[in-house]
Protein backbone atom coordinates (compact mmCIF):
# COMPACT_ATOMS: atom_id res chain seq x y z
CA UNK A 1 0.00 0.00 0.00
CA UNK A 2 1.26 3.44 -0.78
CA UNK A 3 0.33 6.02 1.77
CA UNK A 4 0.75 9.53 0.56
CA UNK A 5 -0.83 11.47 3.32
CA UNK A 6 -2.74 10.55 6.42
CA UNK A 7 -6.36 11.55 6.50
CA UNK A 8 -6.87 14.66 8.55
CA UNK A 9 -9.45 17.42 8.84
CA UNK A 10 -9.31 20.05 6.13
CA UNK A 11 -9.00 17.44 3.42
CA UNK A 12 -10.99 18.07 0.27
CA UNK A 13 -10.36 14.65 -1.21
CA UNK A 14 -9.64 11.41 0.56
CA UNK A 15 -8.79 8.36 -1.48
CA UNK A 16 -8.50 5.26 0.64
CA UNK A 17 -7.01 2.03 -0.65
CA UNK A 18 -8.71 2.31 -4.01
CA UNK A 19 -8.43 -0.50 -6.55
CA UNK A 20 -10.10 -0.60 -9.91
CA UNK A 21 -10.57 -3.66 -12.05
CA UNK A 22 -11.48 -3.68 -15.71
CA UNK A 23 -12.35 -6.51 -18.02
CA UNK A 24 -10.09 -6.13 -20.98
CA UNK A 25 -12.92 -6.40 -23.43
CA UNK A 26 -12.36 -9.94 -24.70
CA UNK A 27 -15.74 -11.03 -23.41
CA UNK A 28 -17.39 -7.66 -23.63
CA UNK A 29 -21.06 -8.19 -23.18
CA UNK A 30 -22.56 -11.53 -23.86
CA UNK A 31 -24.01 -12.81 -27.08
CA UNK A 32 -26.91 -15.22 -27.01
CA UNK A 33 -25.40 -17.49 -29.62
CA UNK A 34 -22.12 -17.83 -27.76
CA UNK A 35 -23.91 -18.34 -24.47
CA UNK A 36 -26.00 -21.09 -25.98
CA UNK A 37 -23.03 -22.86 -27.51
CA UNK A 38 -21.04 -22.59 -24.29
CA UNK A 39 -23.91 -24.04 -22.32
CA UNK A 40 -23.30 -27.46 -23.80
CA UNK A 41 -19.55 -27.54 -23.62
CA UNK A 42 -17.83 -28.04 -20.28
CA UNK A 43 -14.47 -27.40 -21.89
CA UNK A 44 -15.64 -24.13 -23.34
CA UNK A 45 -16.96 -23.14 -19.95
CA UNK A 46 -13.65 -23.86 -18.26
CA UNK A 47 -11.86 -22.02 -21.03
CA UNK A 48 -14.15 -19.08 -20.53
CA UNK A 49 -13.44 -18.94 -16.83
CA UNK A 50 -9.71 -18.91 -17.50
CA UNK A 51 -10.18 -16.22 -20.10
CA UNK A 52 -12.07 -14.15 -17.61
CA UNK A 53 -9.22 -14.40 -15.13
CA UNK A 54 -6.73 -13.40 -17.82
CA UNK A 55 -9.05 -10.60 -18.79
CA UNK A 56 -8.93 -9.00 -15.40
CA UNK A 57 -6.85 -5.91 -15.45
CA UNK A 58 -6.20 -3.90 -12.34
CA UNK A 59 -5.93 -0.32 -13.54
CA UNK A 60 -5.36 0.83 -9.96
CA UNK A 61 -4.00 -1.12 -7.04
CA UNK A 62 -4.38 0.04 -3.45
CA UNK A 63 -3.99 3.72 -4.15
CA UNK A 64 -4.36 6.07 -1.21
CA UNK A 65 -3.81 9.77 -0.95
CA UNK A 66 -5.50 12.85 0.34
CA UNK A 67 -5.61 16.39 -0.87
CA UNK A 68 -5.95 19.46 1.30
CA UNK A 69 -7.93 22.53 0.46
CA UNK A 70 -6.15 24.70 -2.08
CA UNK A 71 -3.54 22.10 -2.97
CA UNK A 72 -2.62 21.53 -6.58
CA UNK A 73 -1.76 17.91 -7.19
CA UNK A 74 -0.21 16.70 -10.41
CA UNK A 75 -0.28 13.13 -11.65
CA UNK A 76 2.48 11.84 -13.89
CA UNK A 77 3.13 8.46 -15.42
CA UNK A 78 3.19 6.56 -18.68
CA UNK A 79 0.13 6.06 -20.90
CA UNK A 80 -2.19 3.50 -19.39
CA UNK A 81 -0.71 3.88 -15.92
CA UNK A 82 -4.12 4.66 -14.42
CA UNK A 83 -4.00 8.46 -14.13
CA UNK A 84 -7.24 9.19 -15.95
CA UNK A 85 -8.98 6.31 -14.19
CA UNK A 86 -7.95 7.90 -10.90
CA UNK A 87 -9.45 11.23 -11.94
CA UNK A 88 -12.67 9.60 -13.10
CA UNK A 89 -13.05 7.81 -9.80
CA UNK A 90 -12.57 11.04 -7.87
CA UNK A 91 -15.08 12.75 -10.18
CA UNK A 92 -17.63 10.04 -9.37
CA UNK A 93 -17.90 8.82 -12.96
CA UNK A 94 -16.75 5.35 -11.91
CA UNK A 95 -17.16 3.51 -8.68
CA UNK A 96 -13.94 1.86 -7.49
CA UNK A 97 -13.96 -1.93 -7.34
CA UNK A 98 -12.47 -1.69 -3.85
CA UNK A 99 -11.75 1.13 -1.48
CA UNK A 100 -13.36 4.45 -0.73
CA UNK A 101 -13.30 7.94 -2.12
CA UNK A 102 -14.62 10.92 -0.22
CA UNK A 103 -14.84 14.41 -1.65
CA UNK A 104 -15.95 17.58 0.05
CA UNK A 105 -17.18 20.31 -2.25
CA UNK A 106 -18.52 20.66 -5.75
CA UNK A 107 -16.40 19.18 -8.48
CA UNK A 108 -15.78 20.51 -11.96
CA UNK A 109 -14.51 17.59 -14.02
CA UNK A 110 -12.74 18.82 -17.13
CA UNK A 111 -12.03 15.30 -18.26
CA UNK A 112 -13.22 15.46 -21.81
CA UNK A 113 -14.62 18.77 -22.89
CA UNK A 114 -17.69 19.01 -25.02
CA UNK A 115 -18.64 15.40 -24.37
CA UNK A 116 -22.26 16.44 -24.19
CA UNK A 117 -22.39 18.53 -27.36
CA UNK A 118 -25.03 17.59 -29.86
CA UNK A 119 -23.66 18.39 -33.32
CA UNK A 120 -27.09 19.19 -34.71
CA UNK A 121 -27.87 21.86 -32.16
CA UNK A 122 -26.67 25.44 -32.39
CA UNK A 123 -23.92 26.88 -30.21
CA UNK A 124 -26.54 28.66 -28.09
CA UNK A 125 -28.50 25.45 -27.52
CA UNK A 126 -25.33 23.52 -26.79
CA UNK A 127 -24.24 25.98 -24.13
CA UNK A 128 -27.43 25.16 -22.23
CA UNK A 129 -27.29 21.43 -22.92
CA UNK A 130 -23.63 21.08 -21.99
CA UNK A 131 -24.10 23.32 -18.98
CA UNK A 132 -26.92 21.08 -17.77
CA UNK A 133 -24.69 18.04 -18.24
CA UNK A 134 -21.95 19.72 -16.21
CA UNK A 135 -24.54 20.13 -13.46
CA UNK A 136 -25.19 23.89 -13.75
CA UNK A 137 -28.60 25.31 -12.96
CA UNK A 138 -30.65 27.18 -15.52
CA UNK A 139 -30.35 30.48 -13.63
CA UNK A 140 -26.59 30.04 -13.47
CA UNK A 141 -26.27 29.60 -17.23
CA UNK A 142 -28.65 32.50 -17.87
CA UNK A 143 -26.47 34.75 -15.74
CA UNK A 144 -23.19 33.53 -17.19
CA UNK A 145 -24.31 33.18 -20.80
CA UNK A 146 -22.67 36.42 -21.99
CA UNK A 147 -19.47 35.63 -20.15
CA UNK A 148 -19.30 32.23 -21.88
CA UNK A 149 -19.94 33.74 -25.29
CA UNK A 150 -17.45 36.58 -24.74
CA UNK A 151 -14.74 34.21 -23.66
CA UNK A 152 -15.26 31.84 -26.57
CA UNK A 153 -15.30 34.78 -29.05
CA UNK A 154 -18.02 32.98 -30.97
CA UNK A 155 -20.80 35.54 -30.74
CA UNK A 156 -21.24 35.65 -34.52
CA UNK A 157 -21.75 31.90 -34.62
CA UNK A 158 -24.31 31.48 -31.84
CA UNK A 159 -27.06 30.29 -34.16
CA UNK A 160 -24.84 27.94 -36.17
CA UNK A 161 -25.10 24.17 -35.55
CA UNK A 162 -21.94 22.93 -33.88
CA UNK A 163 -21.42 20.33 -36.61
CA UNK A 164 -20.42 23.20 -38.88
CA UNK A 165 -17.76 24.38 -36.43
CA UNK A 166 -14.08 23.64 -36.84
CA UNK A 167 -12.63 21.44 -34.12
CA UNK A 168 -10.82 24.45 -32.69
CA UNK A 169 -14.05 26.43 -32.42
CA UNK A 170 -15.81 23.49 -30.76
CA UNK A 171 -12.97 23.19 -28.28
CA UNK A 172 -13.17 26.90 -27.50
CA UNK A 173 -16.88 26.69 -26.84
CA UNK A 174 -16.43 23.63 -24.65
CA UNK A 175 -13.61 25.25 -22.71
CA UNK A 176 -15.65 28.38 -22.14
CA UNK A 177 -18.64 26.45 -20.81
CA UNK A 178 -16.51 24.26 -18.58
CA UNK A 179 -14.48 27.04 -16.98
CA UNK A 180 -17.26 29.48 -16.20
CA UNK A 181 -17.76 27.98 -12.72
CA UNK A 182 -15.79 28.54 -9.57
CA UNK A 183 -15.53 24.93 -8.46
CA UNK A 184 -14.14 23.89 -5.11
CA UNK A 185 -12.43 20.93 -6.74
CA UNK A 186 -11.14 21.16 -10.28
CA UNK A 187 -10.18 18.00 -12.12
CA UNK A 188 -8.15 18.57 -15.25
CA UNK A 189 -7.07 15.95 -17.76
CA UNK A 190 -4.69 17.44 -20.32
CA UNK A 191 -6.67 20.29 -21.71
CA UNK A 192 -4.67 23.34 -20.97
CA UNK A 193 -4.25 24.44 -24.53
CA UNK A 194 -7.09 24.50 -27.01
CA UNK A 195 -7.70 26.54 -30.12
CA UNK A 196 -5.29 28.83 -31.93
CA UNK A 197 -2.23 30.49 -30.41
CA UNK A 198 -4.18 33.47 -29.12
CA UNK A 199 -6.82 31.29 -27.50
CA UNK A 200 -4.19 28.91 -26.13
CA UNK A 201 -2.56 31.66 -24.13
CA UNK A 202 -5.96 32.96 -23.06
CA UNK A 203 -7.15 29.54 -21.93
CA UNK A 204 -3.91 28.88 -20.09
CA UNK A 205 -4.27 32.20 -18.32
CA UNK A 206 -7.82 31.29 -17.34
CA UNK A 207 -6.65 27.93 -15.99
CA UNK A 208 -3.94 29.65 -13.98
CA UNK A 209 -6.53 32.01 -12.55
CA UNK A 210 -8.70 29.09 -11.49
CA UNK A 211 -5.76 27.22 -10.03
CA UNK A 212 -4.33 30.22 -8.20
CA UNK A 213 -7.74 31.25 -6.94
CA UNK A 214 -7.50 28.81 -4.05
CA UNK A 215 -9.22 25.94 -5.83
CA UNK A 216 -8.20 22.40 -5.05
CA UNK A 217 -6.88 20.92 -8.27
CA UNK A 218 -6.14 17.44 -9.54
CA UNK A 219 -4.21 17.63 -12.72
CA UNK A 220 -2.89 15.11 -15.23
CA UNK A 221 -0.29 16.19 -17.73
CA UNK A 222 2.58 14.85 -19.75
CA UNK A 223 4.23 18.24 -19.74
CA UNK A 224 6.57 18.03 -16.77
CA UNK A 225 7.35 21.73 -17.16
CA UNK A 226 3.70 22.54 -16.59
CA UNK A 227 3.49 20.14 -13.67
CA UNK A 228 6.55 21.59 -12.00
CA UNK A 229 5.31 25.11 -12.49
CA UNK A 230 1.80 24.52 -11.14
CA UNK A 231 1.77 21.71 -8.62
CA UNK A 232 2.40 21.68 -4.89
CA UNK A 233 2.44 17.94 -4.83
CA UNK A 234 3.25 15.39 -7.49
CA UNK A 235 2.10 11.79 -7.61
CA UNK A 236 3.84 9.39 -9.95
CA UNK A 237 1.62 6.49 -10.90
CA UNK A 238 3.07 3.41 -12.49
CA UNK A 239 1.07 0.35 -13.50
CA UNK A 240 -1.75 1.32 -11.21
CA UNK A 241 0.35 1.90 -8.13
CA UNK A 242 1.73 5.03 -6.58
CA UNK A 243 5.42 4.79 -7.30
CA UNK A 244 6.41 7.94 -5.58
CA UNK A 245 4.88 11.12 -4.33
CA UNK A 246 6.17 14.36 -3.00
CA UNK A 247 7.51 17.67 -4.29
CA UNK A 248 9.14 18.62 -7.55
CA UNK A 249 11.92 16.08 -7.09
CA UNK A 250 9.44 13.39 -8.16
CA UNK A 251 9.57 14.81 -11.68
CA UNK A 252 13.34 14.45 -11.79
CA UNK A 253 13.17 10.88 -10.49
CA UNK A 254 10.58 10.12 -13.12
CA UNK A 255 12.80 11.52 -15.86
CA UNK A 256 15.79 9.54 -14.62
CA UNK A 257 13.69 6.41 -14.47
CA UNK A 258 12.42 6.93 -18.00
CA UNK A 259 16.04 7.36 -19.12
CA UNK A 260 15.44 10.75 -20.58
Amino acid sequence: MSEVNNASPGNMIEVEDVSMMFNLGIDKGFSLKQGFVDLFSAKKRRQKKEDREKNKFWALKHVSFSVKKGEVVGFIGANGAGKSTMLKIVAGVMKPTEGKVRTYGNICPMIELGAGFDPQLTARENIYLNGAIMGYTEEFIDSKFDEIVEFSELRDFLEVPVQNFSSGMTARLAFSVATVVDPEILIVDEILSVGDIAFQSKSEKKMMEMINGGTTVLFVSHSLGQIKKLCDKIVWIERGEVRKSGGKEVCDDYLTYMNL
Binding site: D118, Q120, L121, L129, A132, I133, Y136
Partner: peptide, 17 residues
Amino acid sequence: SFLLKQLVMRDFKVKYK
Protein backbone atom coordinates in the same frame (compact mmCIF):
# COMPACT_ATOMS: atom_id res chain seq x y z
CA SER B 1 -34.76 18.47 -13.59
CA PHE B 2 -32.96 21.07 -15.68
CA LEU B 3 -30.78 18.41 -17.29
CA LEU B 4 -33.88 16.33 -17.91
CA LYS B 5 -35.58 19.28 -19.56
CA GLN B 6 -32.52 19.94 -21.71
CA LEU B 7 -32.32 16.32 -22.84
CA VAL B 8 -36.00 16.22 -23.76
CA MET B 9 -35.74 19.53 -25.60
CA ARG B 10 -32.64 18.33 -27.44
CA ASP B 11 -34.47 15.26 -28.72
CA PHE B 12 -37.45 17.33 -29.73
CA LYS B 13 -35.38 19.94 -31.58
CA VAL B 14 -33.20 17.38 -33.33
CA LYS B 15 -36.22 15.38 -34.43
CA TYR B 16 -37.84 18.21 -36.33
CA LYS B 17 -34.80 20.29 -37.21
